[in-house]
Structures are given as C-alpha cells and as structure tokens.
Simulated scan of single mutants.
Amino acid sequence: MLSTNYLLPDDWLNITFRLCLALLFGAVIGLERQLKRKPAGLRTHMLVCFGSAVFTLIPLLTNATQPDNNSLSRTIQGITAGVGFIGGGEILRESSEKSQRSEVHGLTSAAAIWVSAALGIVAGCGLWQLGLIAVVLTFLVLNLFKRLEKRYYLKTNREQKDTSILQIPPTEENISTDTNQDNNFIPPKS
C-alpha cells in the first residue's frame, strides 16, 4: 500500500494543489516581510517555498510505485543546506562607508527564508494541516514577538539610561554665569 505522501505521476489535481499551497504559504510570510520593507519579500519567499515543493515532489513522483524514504530524506537535506546559502547571503552585508567593519543584519529574514523552505517541503509532501499551523505560528512570531521585543528593548534602554546618568551636585567651580552657553563646562585655569 502506498503512503499518502507518494503520488502517481498523472495525479495533476493533487500536484497542482500542493504547488499552489506552497505558493500560498510563501506568500503569507513574504507579504509580511514585504510590508516591513525587508530585502527578501513576497516573490523571494514564494519562490523559495515553491522551489522546495517542486524538489520535494520529484522523489515522490519518481518513486510512486516503490516508495523510497531515503531519496525523500536526501532531498530534504539538500533543500535545507541549499537554502542556508540564501540565508547566509541575506545575513552578511558589506560594511558601510561610515563603518570600517562588517555588520550583521537580516537574521530574522534569513530564518523566514528557511521556514519558507520548510513550508514548501510540507506542502510538497501534502501535509497541509501541518503547513497551515506552521504558517500561522510563523506569522505570529514575526509580528507579535517583534512588538514584545520592542517593548522589552525600550524598557531595558530606559533602565540603563537611568542608571548611567551621574548626578553631580553643582559646585562653585562648575557653575557658569553665562546663560547663553550650551553646556556648563568651564576649562580649568592654567
């Protein structure tokens, strides 16, 4: 008996459903990234998800009469490694002219691309329930947790600013009589 993950090569309706599902999953994540004005947006996530689904469907269709979990496993491993290169390109950017060091940006975008690939694999395997749950949870992580992260960052920043300001009581040496000065610094007498 064939597993529900394996397809017959002439099952066009099921194949089309899985590929469209992959495009939908990628669109949900990609649209969120696009609205946040990230470099990897709608089309990138849709194509990563779609490509992963196509690669996943290949061993499912070619081994339809004799299911082979090893070929599917190797395909999934290859997708995971390959998408890592795309994510690496998203993370590392050249330094700006102002800074002479490399800067790291885009970790969340790279992770979103990685999740898009996983969702494409899920869609290619026909596990639409898992895909729907995963895409909703991913959307929540990208939106809800960003707000929580900002709140925590602002709270932490306020606490650090409060403790880092030193209150020096005024003395006769550091009081200026000029009210037009921007700061109260008086150079030491020579």
Rank of each mutant, 00 (worst) to 15 (best):
L2F: 04
L7I: 05
L8A: 06
P9I: 13
D10L: 05
D10F: 07
L13T: 14
I15A: 07
I15L: 03
T16D: 00
L19T: 13
C20N: 11
A22H: 09
L24A: 14
I29M: 09
E32D: 15
K36I: 03
R37N: 12
P39R: 06
A40E: 03
G41E: 03
L42D: 08
R43I: 04
T44H: 01
T44C: 07
V48Y: 08
C49H: 00
F50G: 02
G51R: 01
V54G: 12
F55D: 04
F55C: 13
T56K: 10
L57K: 10
L57F: 08
T62H: 04
T62G: 01
N63D: 12
N63S: 14
P67S: 13
D68S: 12
D68P: 12
D68Y: 10
L72I: 15
S73E: 12
I76Q: 03
I79D: 00
I79G: 08
T80I: 14
T80H: 07
A81Q: 14
F85K: 07
G87I: 06
G89E: 00
R93F: 14
E94K: 15
S95W: 15
E97C: 01
K98Y: 10
Q100G: 15
Q100S: 14
L107E: 10
S109I: 07
I113P: 01
W114A: 05
W114D: 03
W114H: 11
V115W: 00
S116F: 01
G120I: 07
I121V: 13
C125Y: 08
W128L: 04
G131D: 04
G131R: 00
L132V: 15
L132C: 15
A134P: 01
L137E: 09
L137K: 07
F139A: 15
L140W: 05
V141Y: 11
V141W: 04
N143D: 01
N143T: 15
